[in-house]
């Protein structure tokens, strides 16, 4: 459903992504790991259209979306969450999800209200519908990122370190939510530093470093590769989990 062809992006003389190519099939859950500054978030921004690429093409559901602005890609079915939550702080949780249902999913009236509330329920925020976003905890802000992305009715969901900064029990709750999302047939690409959270969910793991693909394949096989170990400075998979 998603196909990246030789994506390139530089900030000035700094090459952030080199010739990245990758494919994702319908309903697949792909994890991305890599050290800080490897280009993971930049890759997401390129897919969702927040930044434009310097070279290469992005195909989504068979269509070339490389030149489309972010809001059109969202309407086409690419939903994303931000690494640092960016809620609409002057609005309530319900309004945050409702605007996504209105514009991302293209729904109106009662249908939009219902869809927004279901996304909020799935993300575990149903008891805080009218809470202003300025007063949310980190976990709830992460959940809101998820709820808002889900309310756009995505076919592909991009999650940027949705588990980062959370404690173990909170991560478990989040994994349950993500498994449910996977069951609904939504394709997911998930960037995460918490490797055990990733490996417990994803079908495939992609490792990137310095903007290039290092490894791509079955999570356990990938994590066992020596070059992946090297990037993580000898960090053992067993230790991490």
């Amino acid at each position: 459903m998603l196909k990246l062809e030789n994506i390139q992006k530089s900030y000035g003389s700094l090459k952030v992504i080199h010739n990245m190519s990758c494919e994702l099939s319908q309903g697949e859950m792909l994890g991305i790991i890599g050290p800080n500054g490897a280009g993971k978030t930049t890759l997401f921004s390129a897919i969702s259209g927040q930044i434009s690429v310097d070279g290469g093409k992005i195909f989504f559901l068979g269509e070339d979306v490389t030149g489309l602005p972010a809001f059109k890609r969202c309407m086409a079915g690419i939903g994303r969450s931000f690494q640092i939550p960016r809620p609409f702080h002057g609005m309530t949780i319900f309004e945050n999800a409702r605007v996504a249902a209105n514009f991302g999913a293209g729904l109106s009236g009662k249908t939009a209200d219902k869809f927004a509330i279901q996304a909020i329920e799935l993300s575990g925020l149903a008891d805080q519908l009218n809470t202003p976003c300025s007063s949310l905890s980190l976990l709830d802000r992460k959940r809101l990122e998820l709820a808002r992305a889900l309310a756009t009715d995505p076919k592909l969901l991009l999650l940027d370190e949705i588990a980062g900064g959370l404690v173990e029990s909170e991560i478990h709750d989040l994994i349950d939510i993500l498994k449910e999302i996977g069951r609904r047939g939504i394709s997911v690409i998930w960037i995460e530093h918490i490797v055990h959270a990733l490996t417990s969910c994803v079908d495939r793991l992609l490792v990137i470093n310095f903007g290039a693909k290092i490894a791509d394949g079955d999570p356990n096989t990938v994590m066992a590769l020596p070059e992946v170990h090297e990037i993580y400075m000898g960090l053992d998979v067993e230790d991490a989990s």
Partner: peptide, 23 residues
């Protein structure tokens, strides 16, 4: 719904675009 979109532009333009708002 237009009004909701108006307020998203004020709160965060990048987020607004990422939920499908033509800012």
């Amino acid at each position: 719904r237009f009004g909701l979109a108006v307020r998203t532009v004020r709160d965060n333009e990048a987020s607004a675009e990422s939920v499908g708002v033509n800012i």
